[in-house]
Design a protein around this nucleic acid. Structure first.
Lengths: 192, 192
DNA sequence: ACTTTTGTTGACAAAATTGTTAAACATAAA
DNA sequence: TTTATGTTTAACAATTTTGTCAACAAAAGT
């Protein structure tokens, strides 16, 4: 079934921002990419700024709910981690620049930080990590660092694709296989 | 001694882009931040676009030369790595968004990719890594993955500061100490 | 001192981007 | 068929951003 135009505009904006890295596309560019009249953006979202805010909010939401869905259940830790890496990296390949978009929005001046409630799933995950550290499955330390490491190892090479392809002089195909290899590598590295 | 205005403009632009994360500042914003008349930007750089290109080129250059300076010498591997992490993280804290800027510039449509000569220092470093793997000091694998891991572990938590501070509900101070702890942690993790 | 060059500024013009409005259009209900 | 409702469009207006230019100031050269 066809997407409503409102949804189409939003999805296209996300595609431009998160996939193509056009972090400050104009309304005209978004409208063209969506194949709709630019005025429709104002009709549905009132202003460019509100469209950006909407996309921002939904991105944070979906980021949180993705984390929640995976982290907040009772599969054994190691297995859960495998699933997490799988899910997260699939999403990363679809939306490599989502976090970058969020960062630039937060940095943009007219931005008001809101809600500060820590994700329950995350707290749960941190506790699990601490338990694994107790058991000796994981190297001891602040669980936050474990989370940093995990997210960094997954995200960074994906985010930096165009730059590192250039700097390291690697072909697109080779880079893709490198990324694909990483799921397994990260698991090994983490449980060394 | 006072900076020439041309240099001042460039430095201010870098400060806005790389430190403050204003990846698409207007010429007026740059001029204001530098305390100069906006026309001076056109006088020295002809156009906004050329200023951006200049900053981009210099950032890639300095990124390369920083890597070269550290990687291309004869201190023992482990020690060299310590220095590298030190230097790189110091630079990261000064310019957390430098890589993000490069990425968005590369993604921006009117961008022509140029020079594809691999850094000699990097090649040298990769060979050293391979040797350490032979010796058993490092876990075997594609040395590129080692470089990915290293850069990811350093850069990512810094780049994501504003977002993760928010999501993890961590105070600015706490976050800073976490980052500061990482140099040691990364070394340990790498040589597990 | 005078001329030439370089740097600096404000005013203006041009271009790009956004927001608004009214009219055209479609669709379904009355 | 008319009416009402929501959608879509083009034309226009307003705003923002960029680029140019002539005038002026400062410095350097003769």
């Amino acid at each position: 079934m066809a997407l409503s135009k409102e949804e189409l505009i939003k999805q296209t904006a996300k595609d431009l921002f998160f996939s193509k890295g056009c972090l400050h596309a104009t309304t005209q560019e978004i409208a063209d990419a969506a194949g709709v009249n630019r005025s429709l953006i104002n009709y549905y979202f009132r202003s460019r700024d509100l469209l950006f805010q909407t996309v921002y909010r939904e991105a944070v939401e979906s980021l949180k709910s993705q984390l929640d869905k995976v982290l907040y259940d009772n599969t054994p830790f190691k297995e859960k981690l495998g699933i997490f890496i799988d899910v997260y990296m699939k999403e990363l390949l679809k939306y490599p620049y989502r976090e970058s978009f969020l960062i630039t929005e937060i940095c943009s001046k007219n931005f008001a930080l809101k809600e500060k409630k820590k994700s329950a799933a995350l707290a749960h995950f941190l506790k699990e990590i601490a338990e694994e550290m107790e058991k000796g499955t994981l190297k001891k330390g602040d669980p936050i660092h474990f989370v940093f490491d995990l997210l960094a190892l997954m995200s960074f090479p994906v985010i930096m694709t165009p730059l590192y392809q250039k700097l390291l002089d690697i072909s697109k195909e080779k880079y893709q296989t490198l990324i694909a290899e990483r799921k397994q590598l990260i698991l090994e590295k983490i449980f060394n």
